[in-house]
Design a protein around this nucleic acid. Structure first.
Lengths: 108, 108
DNA sequence: CTGCATCCTTGAGGATACTG
DNA sequence: CAGTATCCTCAAGGATGCAG
């Protein structure tokens, strides 16, 4: 149920929205590797959970802006903490992984 | 790459190990809904990333204990923060969701 | 008890084309 | 530009059986 929150795309989207309102195309450009479909689905889910608001400007071409709600901003705190942990420990994780993978090969 | 860390089972496993060393069967009983296969895979991933250690006691029957490494314990901090956020805001998330789902039905 | 291998189902998610 | 719909792939993950 909370799977959405632990979800990779949700995390990245929330991080993108941390520094303010963004439009759809900005998000898509900013979130590396996300497809249009997944961005749509992710934003829907976040909106559904009351974490972001969606504001439509009926202009041509259309313009849609997404903003973190107060609830979303409060989530952004622990999410950012997790993200920072990962960044800070990337090297260590990578080293551990290489160490681990190095074993088991020298069997012969 | 960090998908493993955001992963549902990894999160739950790390939380289970937060209060000390556990053996395989303890983890399986403690993590609701996890299959033996997924627990094995999850533990291997965590071990590979240097987050848990695996200690085998060559007894009969075999006994295997899993413990968070210092790196794992440091990850446990932000992970717990995220978990606590979810618990604290479950009601609000649920309310938002019901509000959201209530719309769009009265179309006809 | 712990763990690996196999089979099978399900759904996440990408690619693409179309609409307002 | 923003969004929907469709098709298709592939891997996550459950169930089961076997082994040390």
């Amino acid at each position: 149920m909370l799977a959405k929150i632990g979800d990779k795309w949700s995390i990245l989207t929330i991080m993108m929205l941390s520094d303010g309102t963004k439009r759809f195309s900005e998000l898509q450009r900013g979130i590396d590797g996300i497809s249009q479909r997944m961005l749509t689905l992710t934003l829907r889910g976040l909106e559904r959970d009351g974490l972001v608001t969606r504001e439509v400007f009926p202009t041509i071409p259309p313009r849609v802006e997404y903003t973190l709600t107060p609830l979303g901003r409060s989530l952004q705190v622990p999410v950012k903490a997790l993200g920072e942990w990962v960044v800070k420990n990337l090297a260590e994780l990578d080293a551990a992984r290489r160490r681990f993978d190095a074993m088991g090969e020298g069997s012969d």
